[in-house]
Amino acid sequence: MRWLRACANVPPRLRGARIGTGAYISPRALLQEHSRIAVGQRTLVGRHVELVPQGGSITIGSDCSLNNHVVLYGAGGITVGDGCRIATGVVIVAFNHGYDDLTLPIHRQPITARGVAVGDDVWIGARSIVLDGVTVGSGSVIGAGSVVTHDVPEFAMVAGNPAHVLRRRGAARATAVATPRPVP
């Protein structure tokens, strides 16, 4: 993968990030800790997208799209494979707060940060949430509004809160028998 380094054709607000050739980063996107962010070739990062490594790293593959209002918090590291579609309002959080010690307030407890890995050719539906420690298998689809708390197998279609496997991509769907409506 060829990267554009800090040079004249990279806007100052992106210098230090590794941006692949042909990638588009909206001027309204927020990329923090630039040296910990890599965006692949021909990838689109939409308006009001937030890429916040929080001490970890965020790597987005080539030919991806992160639509408007996507938020990635990468303390444990986030990797997104090639050809992925991440729809509007998706949140991926690669860390979690501790809360088991009753002698300490939650904000003083240690965090865990295992990371999130998304394979190639994945579609994450609008307003879904993917939580720390999850691996999303290549070719899978996450239905809109889902909360993903466990690994998603390759080519699975998942949905719900918590998300569960509905079927595998390519498997025959159950067909409903259409009954004609009576004419009034």
Score class of each variant (00 low, 15 high):
1 M>I: 00
1 M>F: 04
2 R>A: 00
4 L>H: 02
6 A>S: 13
8 A>E: 13
8 A>Y: 07
9 N>R: 03
9 N>A: 06
12 P>C: 06
13 R>W: 13
13 R>C: 03
13 R>A: 10
16 G>W: 09
17 A>L: 05
17 A>C: 02
17 A>P: 00
21 T>P: 00
23 A>N: 03
24 Y>L: 09
24 Y>R: 11
27 P>V: 10
27 P>R: 04
27 P>K: 06
29 A>S: 01
29 A>E: 03
30 L>D: 01
32 Q>G: 00
33 E>W: 09
33 E>I: 02
33 E>S: 05
34 H>Q: 10
35 S>K: 06
38 A>H: 09
39 V>D: 05
39 V>R: 02
40 G>E: 01
41 Q>Y: 02
42 R>Q: 10
44 L>R: 06
46 G>M: 05
46 G>C: 05
47 R>Q: 14
47 R>F: 15
49 V>K: 08
49 V>I: 07
50 E>D: 10
52 V>D: 15
52 V>I: 10
56 G>A: 03
56 G>D: 06
57 S>P: 00
57 S>G: 03
60 I>Q: 00
64 C>Q: 10
64 C>K: 07
65 S>W: 15
67 N>C: 05
67 N>S: 10
72 L>G: 04
75 A>L: 09
76 G>Q: 04
76 G>S: 01
78 I>N: 00
79 T>P: 02
80 V>M: 05
81 G>W: 13
82 D>W: 06
85 R>M: 05
87 A>P: 00
90 V>M: 07
90 V>E: 02
91 V>S: 01
92 I>H: 03
92 I>Y: 06
93 V>C: 03
94 A>G: 02
95 F>M: 06
96 N>C: 08
97 H>W: 14
98 G>W: 13
99 Y>A: 04
100 D>C: 05
102 L>M: 05
102 L>H: 09
104 L>F: 11
105 P>Q: 00
108 R>W: 12
109 Q>H: 14
111 I>F: 15
112 T>N: 02
114 R>F: 10
117 A>R: 12
120 D>T: 05
121 D>V: 06
122 V>A: 13
122 V>N: 13
123 W>F: 15
125 G>L: 12
126 A>F: 11
127 R>E: 14
130 V>W: 08
130 V>S: 08
130 V>Q: 04
131 L>V: 07
131 L>K: 05
132 D>A: 11
136 V>S: 03
136 V>Q: 07
137 G>Q: 05
138 S>E: 13
138 S>Q: 10
138 S>I: 07
139 G>H: 15
143 G>H: 14
143 G>F: 15
144 A>H: 11
146 S>D: 12
147 V>M: 13
147 V>G: 11
149 T>V: 15
150 H>I: 01
151 D>W: 12
153 P>G: 09
154 E>M: 12
155 F>L: 11
157 M>L: 15
158 V>Q: 09
159 A>R: 11
159 A>G: 11
160 G>N: 11
162 P>W: 15
162 P>L: 12
163 A>Q: 07
165 V>E: 07
168 R>N: 12
171 A>W: 13
173 R>S: 14
174 A>I: 08
177 V>D: 08
177 V>S: 11
180 P>L: 09
180 P>M: 08
181 R>L: 15
182 P>Q: 12
184 P>A: 14
